[in-house]
Design a protein around this nucleic acid. Structure first.
Lengths: 202, 202
DNA sequence: CGCTCTCTTGATAGACTTCAATGTTAGTGG
DNA sequence: CCACTAACATTGAAGTCTATCAAGAGAGCG
């Protein structure tokens, strides 16, 4: 979709489908920086920052609404409340990265994967795209590995553990969290950093 | 300095000294989320986000200027240019976190530590606090470990490698980068994400 | 049917952690 | 000036976690 290094003059509101932002290293390994679900504006930061060396890619078929930077700028100038809300969104993105730093620095494989499931489920349910501890999850095991910094093989084995412990069921692109409470414990997940009005915990 | 969980009504401009933001996990391990050097406003995000569960702490003696949130808000409302600049700062913070995600996910011990040195040096030199590949670096090896997600022992051994390769010299609180080019290569460091006007590479 | 992509499994190697001890340095009080 | 202490740095040995390599199994698709 977007390549590294160009300098767009539009932002994209993701209407349907999933996007990832990723960085490809010199040795061709890949790190997925963020997962984007419908309702988000993945490149809002481009309003104020020139392109960095990471790329947006689609995981599924996706529909985006294209919004010129100029439109955002006039909106921000005219409506301080909206400006504050947008700023706030980018601050929450930063907090999500912060959690990833904690996870990659201090969590083991099980915790990282469990945390990804927890966060994704809560973010989806905030916009009504998930409920009853079920949601879409259109990643491959290799994608999960690139997101949480593990090899595909080890992701596979960790998933087997999570399944054996009856914490999740994941087949194809549909995920079901069988034991939310214990998955949260494994992940050491606290949704506060997402700054949602009401948490989806149960 | 600041504890977890309270809800301040001021921001602090760091005038002198070093701060860290860190999160203490349940098992009492610690992850340092960010390092703050003079000229920064470490908790600017608190303008729009309630407190999260991380703490600010001093690494050295530090002087801060206390700025009420209200002052920032009126400034933001009155001066769109300043508002944009502040927003931009928080976006750069997010990019720094993003780099940490890449580092923790895909770099080994040497690369992580080297990257920390590179980033810190460039950020310091941007405000004139470092030059000639020398700068202050008032962390302990244990701090470095908590920052880059390694054990103290392994940090020590990795440092010995960096020293043996004549890449750095670090004693007490003063750091000298002996071979910038090779350190950058080890770190896979590209300062673009810091969005500084001119890079300090040489 | 053959192809490709994804998932799965086993064996082996490497990176990093943990535990425990020792060395070093700077500061403190006598 | 010296003993004493505390904090930090360093070392060795053993163990755990995760990566890598290699191969096979299943599913979807032209």
């Amino acid at each position: 979709m977007t390549q590294e290094g160009n300098r767009p003059s539009n932002c994209y509101l993701l209407v349907e489908g999933w996007l990832i932002r990723c960085k490809v290293l010199r040795d061709s390994r890949r790190q997925i920086l963020s997962l984007h679900v419908p309702g988000e504006v993945p490149d809002l930061h481009a309003l104020y920052l020139h392109a960095t060396d990471c790329a947006l890619a689609t995981l599924t078929h996706a529909r985006v609404a294209c919004i010129p930077h100029e439109a955002f700028r006039t909106l921000i100038a005219a409506r301080p409340t909206i400006a504050a809300a947008l700023w706030r969104e980018t601050l929450i993105d930063a907090q999500i990265y912060q959690q990833r730093v904690i996870g990659l620095g201090r969590r083991g494989a099980l915790g990282r994967i469990a945390h990804l499931f927890c966060e994704t489920y809560v973010r989806l349910s905030a916009t009504g795209l998930a409920k009853d501890h079920r949601c879409e999850f259109p990643l491959t095991q290799a994608d999960v590995g690139d997101a949480v910094g593990l090899s595909t093989v080890h992701v596979n084995r960790s998933l087997q553990t999570l399944r054996a412990e009856q914490l999740i069921s994941w087949q194809g692109r549909s995920l079901e969290i069988l034991n939310w409470k214990r998955l949260v414990a494994v992940a050491d997940f606290d949704p506060a950093y997402l700054h949602l009005d009401k948490s989806a915990a149960s």
